[in-house]
Design a protein around this nucleic acid. Structure first.
Lengths: 252, 252
DNA sequence: AGGTTCGAACAAAAAATATGTTTGCTATGT
DNA sequence: ACATAGCAAACATATTTTTTGTTCGAACCT
């Protein structure tokens, strides 16, 4: 088993079981306990799990959003498909603001080689875009939230307020026709709202699971959105409800 | 010869000679031409030299500032000494704005583990500071200049105008008592000016060579500075002239 | 107190990287 | 257009780096 596969197995196994002993993981992966310990140290550093003497436990289980590093490895393919679809919807020369989050990071990557003006709202996306020769890169100010590296706060809001974009690509924690676009983090929600206000067209990216979820902070009602790009396993009733509100839904 | 030594040798040799053939470099380094070609491709990518058919030429020679990657490997030790001295001058809890440039990057690294509020003016420094647990990191907006990754433009200036710092750590391209603090890039100069205006105390970092140089854009007269940290091989007459203007000069 | 877990240190194994050679292609100058 | 030097892909080899397992003393929990 290659080390990255083993890491994934450990992460998944711990997530499923809630907690697991080092010995158990060593047996499952067919490696020594020392290797498992080294892996756990690594994964704990990345925030993928929590270490305790003798084993590791999952960091989920609470009502919170899982950490960035955990989401980053989930459904990579789906995110790339969504990102490719979004990239198709954006014309060369546009000014685009790209939200934080893993799906939006995929969008940023898909746009890196394009001739565009882009303002990413996270440092992950920023790092993916620096050095792109054709791209005009604009950064908002703000305070990067640990892990997520999403830029938030008054400086970020002021940066957005000073600009007008053709398109905003927004991620979310929840989106339903009834409850609108929602986010777990209040500061994030404020930034999303500012980005939406600064853009002529709003495209929301959301994996299927998001369409049956509602998070704490309301960002905007669904009627404020022009388009939603989601996966083809999205629940039909939500898709239909969104369409009924005049939102263009694209499933890939 | 290890590959990194060879890279340094090639970079230096090309810089000294202005231009050199692949064959010449292969002989000098005792490697095959293929290896030299691969090295040149790598170094050219980093902007350390310019490739042409049959060899490579230096990217300097004009009145311009050498590219970031080139300066980054020069006088690393001196920069670290200067950075350590600056770190000593800053008290825990301060709010600090750190300019772009290689010396200021060293300062950022020296402050990473401290309990401070820091606004770096370049993405290089930002990347050095993300993840520092005790540090409150603030980003200005702006457009990152390629290579340098210095944040400039109206967004950056607006971010600075909205804040007040205890200390500004400023780099420069030239500093003399007569001509003041100067920079090559106009946009950079504007940012430095804004940072100085936003700070209660201004510390300038400058290797010895900077003290006998004057660049295009005036940032501020020497009287606007509180302190200068430089190396011990700085020219005495400049040091004395700065002291005569009431600037505290520290040589390390 | 006693067993368990941990982490440092080292050695072995595996993987990744760097290098050199060959070969066929491409660009450049005459 | 042609000759030549330079170049890059492909492959084999060598070198370095990374990963892994083992051992052993220290740290830790109950």
């Amino acid at each position: 088993m290659a080390s990255v596969d083993r890491h994934r197995h450990i992460t998944d196994a711990v997530r499923r079981a809630g907690q697991l002993s080092v010995a158990e993981l060593a047996e499952q992966t067919g490696t020594s306990e020392m290797t498992v310990r080294r892996d756990l140290e690594l994964l704990a550093e990345q925030g993928l799990l929590e270490r305790y003497r003798g084993g590791a436990r999952s960091v989920l289980l609470r009502g919170e959003e899982p950490p960035f590093a955990l989401r980053a490895n989930d459904g990579v393919e789906v995110k790339q498909r969504i990102a490719a679809a979004v990239a198709e919807m954006i014309a060369d020369g546009e000014a685009v603001v790209i939200d934080a989050g893993t799906t939006c990071l995929a969008v940023a990557r898909a746009l890196a080689h394009r001739r565009l003006t882009v303002m990413p709202l996270s440092l992950h996306a920023t790092n993916a875009l620096v050095g792109a020769p054709q791209l005009r890169l604009l950064l908002p100010g703000g305070e990067p939230r640990p892990g997520e590296l999403a830029l938030t706060g008054p400086l970020a809001e002021a940066s957005l307020a000073a600009l007008r974009f053709d398109t905003a690509v927004i991620g979310c924690c929840g989106l339903t026709a009834a409850n609108g676009l929602t986010a777990y983090d209040l500061a994030d929600a404020a930034i999303k709202r500012a980005a939406i206000a600064a853009a002529h067209r709003v495209i929301v990216v959301a994996e299927a699971a998001k369409l049956s979820r509602t998070a704490l902070a309301l960002v905007a009602p669904a009627t404020a959105l022009q388009a939603v790009v989601t996966a083809d396993d999205a629940p039909d009733e939500e898709v239909d409800a969104l369409k009924a509100l005049g939102v263009a839904v694209r499933q890939v």
